[in-house]
Computed example of a mutant assay.
Amino acid sequence: MKCVTSGMKKWMMGIMTGALALSLSACGDSSGTNGNSGGNGGGGAEEKKLVIYTARDKNVVDAVIPKFKEKHPDIDVQVMTMGAQQILERVRGEKANPQADFWWGGTQAALITAANEGLLESVKPSFADKVPAQYKDAQDRWYGEMLLPEVIMYNSQALKKEDVPKDWDELLDSKYKGKIIIRGVLASGTMRTIYSSMIYRQDPKDPTKGYEWLKKLDANTKEYAQDPTNLYLKLARQEGTLSLWNLQDILIQKEKQKQPFDFAIPSSGIPILVDGVGVVKGAKHKDAAMKFYEFLFDEKLRVELAENLFQIPTRTDISKDKMPAWFKNIELKPLPIDWQVMAEKEKEWMQYWDENIKGKGAK
């Protein structure tokens, strides 16, 4: 067989050169640079994507994401909703090959744990000095987006205000037996925080008293709802009349969904959860993640979310005059909690609760 012609050689070389160029382009780094900048992201179609893991309520997601898409129509936003603890476990499991770019909605304890495990990028946003030190990571690996006061929730059609527990310990009264419904604890960052706080307030150095307290609460608990939607449904149907939950979601259900819910603030103080966000370490679309980061903390959006979705911002530079009336009328007394200790002990405490207390309180 004769050798290929000169023209054929040129054609084949052209094909090979084009394939090599495409291969090199596909191997380019689109995750941006390391350090405290947003990175250049590398551009290209791959960068025009943003994968968000969120524990936010659907009402919040539906209010925020369309606004972000309107500002950044070139970014394909993909949102996956799950519990805050589930996000931690998923990001941990994907550490070698991160699938998410941005973690939206995590408890302080979960974010501290994630930061300590090297799961979050150190990035310093433009609003860094507007958020107090107690609401952010010292190495800029996460920032608190809002404050979530944890309170007593009740069905206002089934219970008069004067019949609602005035403090945490009153929940243990036998008259509330079978009237309490709790959101499944282990999958919920909110519930893990509340339960860990109940142990901490007894004695953070010796959890025994806290375990006894939770055992008594378990004895009064009718059931553990699998998710917030299930919890709301059961409370609305008066299958139970009391729960423990965060103030923001209670107000959303009460004011927006017209559910018969209200809240009581325990007199001894409440755990005020710092609910935060962060960029996942090794995010494939870091530039897009940083755009969303900045967008979330925009002052105009923070005021809108306070007005419409009852969020309490961590930014201290927003004038109270711009904030809604409900915000001005709320007085919060925080429980004195060392959140670093909570982050270190939460897993141990909750594992013990799950294995030795859940469903055994009445026995």
Rank of each mutant, 00 (worst) to 15 (best):
K179Y: 10
K291D: 09
I112H: 08
Q259E: 09
I52W: 02
L335M: 14
G44T: 14
D140Y: 15
E94L: 09
T81Q: 11
L88F: 10
I270K: 03
L24D: 09
Y195F: 15
G39E: 08
Y53N: 13
P207D: 12
T54Q: 00
A115C: 05
W104S: 01
L172Y: 01
R141K: 13
V185P: 09
T314I: 02
I337C: 03
G189N: 05
D275M: 14
W326L: 00
N356V: 04
L147P: 01
L231K: 03
D167F: 01
I330C: 05
I312L: 07
V60Y: 12
Q78M: 10
A115L: 05
L214W: 01
I194Y: 04
G359M: 00
Y176F: 07
D287A: 15
E121K: 10
L305F: 05
P125Y: 12
D169G: 09
A289Y: 03
F297Y: 14
K281C: 05
P324A: 06
K2L: 10
N155A: 08
H72A: 09
G282H: 15
G83M: 02
N220F: 02
K9E: 02
G32M: 00
I152H: 06
W326M: 00
Y352Q: 07
D317G: 07
D167M: 01
P149A: 01
V91N: 07
D76N: 14
Y176K: 01
K49H: 13
D74N: 12
W326Y: 02
E355A: 14
D338E: 05
